[in-house]
Design a protein around this nucleic acid. Sequence first.
DNA 1: TCTCGTATCATTAATATGATAAAATCCGCC
DNA 2: GGCGGATTTTATCATATTAATGATACGAGA
Lengths: 254, 254
Amino acid sequence: MISRSLGQNLTNSIVQDLGVAIVTGTYSDQNPFPVEAQLCRQYGASRTALREAVKMLTAKGLLGARPRQGTWVQPESKWNLLDPDILGWLLERKFSPALLTEFTEVRLAIEPLAAALAATAAGPAEKAAVRDAIERMRAAERGEDDPLASDIAFHVAVLRASKNRFYAQLTELTTSALRFSIRTTNRYKGVKLASVADHKRVADAIVAGRPAAAAEAMRRMIQEALDLIVSHEAGTPARRRRSIARRARTPAAA
Amino acid sequence: MISRSLGQNLTNSIVQDLGVAIVTGTYSDQNPFPVEAQLCRQYGASRTALREAVKMLTAKGLLGARPRQGTWVQPESKWNLLDPDILGWLLERKFSPALLTEFTEVRLAIEPLAAALAATAAGPAEKAAVRDAIERMRAAERGEDDPLASDIAFHVAVLRASKNRFYAQLTELTTSALRFSIRTTNRYKGVKLASVADHKRVADAIVAGRPAAAAEAMRRMIQEALDLIVSHEAGTPARRRRSIARRARTPAAA
DNA sequence: TCTCGTATCATTAATATGATAAAATCCGCC
DNA sequence: GGCGGATTTTATCATATTAATGATACGAGA
């Protein structure tokens, strides 16, 4: 049985539950993915509901199935990491500095260019949204709004303003990542909250239609966040390569 | 009925068929998505098979369903554009210069950084893969290998060499896009095939461990491809903004 | 006796069918 | 105009049949 209040319907609840179990590494050679009938018993659900859940996870690349062979967890390389559900499950249920680092590298690639595109492509409405987000951040500084929510609103506004549909897809992912990233970095000592001044520099450049300035300001902000994450990956094997990766960006913009 | 030989099993065939129909805009207010029973008749399939197909499309964000309300096509903003299936359906079945442009903008953001990361993070095996791809491109120049396949192999090798799992996810997407992009650009007059020299510059920088050079060389290549696409978007409303977008990148690297 | 191919069988997902439940809208009644 | 049942449609359940696939046993030939 499963607490069905979570998502909404039974199938979705099973999807959530199995999805989390899979990405957190519950199943392996020692503990192979159960066969259909077994899962039905486990969840107290009918085969219909269960199979539909399995199909949804299959569509996201997490599972595979064949007669006589049963259902199995696909190798991680086949997972749709950019699926909002999967990334959410990973970030929320299986903390890994490496994953956060890698996703931030995605943001480091995308968001500066998004800011540049926004500076040329954004209409009045989109620019207003960016400005509004800055206002919210200011309000948050005065304790009149939520700092996290306003920070997220800013990045989402920029991504949307880029008018690139793929970038816009990252809003949900970025929301997850930011929400989680902040929660993590807040545990680090000496971390100040997002600086309104830094964000405003991006916003001003976008509104003024200065793509290069917008890109560079955004790049610096995210690079800073990435450095912060990397600097706390202490002891992780990946550390050295990350700090080199950082250096790699600098000359291209110098 | 549906020709089942396509994918493999009935459910997958229905997924493909419905998926293509949806992304190509078959359904609208005038032609709403049919109800379950109707689709069953249409495909001559059981409700089980059909419902599982619908669930898979729901998992990709294409469909939504509720009792008494039926099944409907979600607004495009909810589609998982980064799902390999969906992007494939879009690029192959619904050509749109705008979409190709937007995806190339994603590549323009990601691949240079991927090249930079590869220059510092790639191991011997990954570097060898990059070199091998260059060799294949050379062979293709002599007519001894497939130009398209070797070009794809190069970009895939770099993405993998970056050791960033999200970048690696783009391999399948890039494969689709390249395969399609080439097919398209080959129709343009005066288009030369991918230059081995340009690609080799990237490869050399990666092998030599020079991230900035790798990034810059890659950026130029993709920018060139983007320019090519944009320059042939003649008459499209998006044209002006794209050419500005191109300009936007230049100062950041100047 | 060994080897190879073939037939049989067992397991498991795939598909089909029909019935019941729950949700949401619509319609008519008060 | 609000309330309650009727209706439509998906959601879930239960059971049966089919198909795919791997394992095993069998048998023919060398």
